[in-house]
Structures are given as C-alpha cells and as structure tokens.
Amino acid sequence: MLDMVTVVDVVLLALLSTTAVAILIMRHLFAVVALTGAFSLLSAGLLVTLDAVDVAFTEAAVGAGISTVLMLGTLALTRRRESRPPRLSPIGLLIITITGGALIYATPDMPKFGDPNAPSHQHIIPSYIKGSQDDIGIPNIVTSILASYRSFDTLGEVAVIFTAGMGVIILLGRRREDEHGYSEDGAAYPLKDKNKPKINDETST
C-alpha cells in the first residue's frame, strides 16, 4: 500500500507544475491572477505536508491573500492582455538550462529530509537543545531560540518589519478629510464633486 502522504505530495507537485506552465502560456492577465492564487495555495498545501506550518501560513496570507489583491489593483490600471513577448534569445535559454541543470545535479547531494545528521542540525543546535531548559527555562525550544539565543536577530527583524509597516502607512494612508470632503492641504478634490476626473468614467454608468 502506497503511503498516502507521498501520493498527495506527488499529485500536488504535478498540479503545481501544470499551473506554472499554464501561467507562462496564458496571455489573459486576469486568468493569470486567478492561477497565481491557486499556485500559492498549492505551494502552501505542499509546505503543510512538509510540516513547515508557519511558512505555509505566510505563503497563504501573502501569496493567496495580499498578492491577489495587489495584482488586481495593478490590473485595474493596465491592459487586460499581456503583449507578445520579444523573441527568445538563445543565449539566455542556454544559460538558464545550464543553471537549472546544475541545480538539479546538485540536489542529490543534499541531506535527506529530516536527516538528524545533516550539517544544519549538527552545528550549534545540539547545544541549544541540551542547554535550553537550564539556560532559559522555557519548555518550548523554538521559543527559547527565537526569543533568547537569537534575540538580537529577532529584534532586528521586528525593527525591519516595523519600518516597512510605517513606510506603507506613510505612502498609502488616506489623507484626513474634513466634513466637506476636502483634505487638509486642500489639494484633493471634494468627494461629492461631479466634475472630479474619473479614470474609468465609462465603466461607472
């Protein structure tokens, strides 16, 4: 009897590559957006079968949630069909084939999935696992690594995310408007003004 998780893995990977090829071939950008949503949900499913639940969370939230919205927003500003790409350059194709071949050639040298003797599990992790209970006293080893052994690293990450969030708020945050619909600096059009230029006037009827 085949291991069911393996079957699920194989089928998910097959669907993933089908989606990728379809995205490449399609010229209708709306269909491409729908398919990229399906693509990232598929890869999130694959990450769940690999037990990388936190990565899968991020993939689903960013890939399927936010990216779909962002790409649709872009689609509202551009044309709905992709223009014909320029002709394939043979040198680029050659370079990509060689690089891809080298990567595939290197794959069997990687340690097996979950191998306890893999170099990444031998370097400093054993001392973390042994010392965590005495050093920090938290039962969850992941938490003690993130919050104590690598706390400065985590602090830096939090600072980066905070800066990015502030940047987004400054760039995209709505201007405050008074009750007449004018923004504080008086530059924006009042909301109720019928002469306000609309980008997509013909679709609003």
């Binding site: 399927a64 689609l75 679709t203 609003s204």
Partner: peptide
C-alpha cells in the same frame, strides 16, 4: 486550525476579485 485560517484568507481574495469585477477599481 490551519485549514480554518486558509478559509479566511481565501475569502479575502474572492472579495477582491468580485469588487474588481463590479467597479474595475480596488481603491
């Protein structure tokens, strides 16, 4: 639990697509 969160995320995408259809604009 993860499946529940995916259901929520999936909903966001669908709402965005439908809003795009109706108004040709997300902003």
């Amino acid at each position: 639990d993860i499946a529940l969160l995916y259901a929520l995320v999936n909903f966001v995408g669908t709402i965005a697509i439908l809003k795009f259809f109706r108004y040709r604009n997300l902003g």
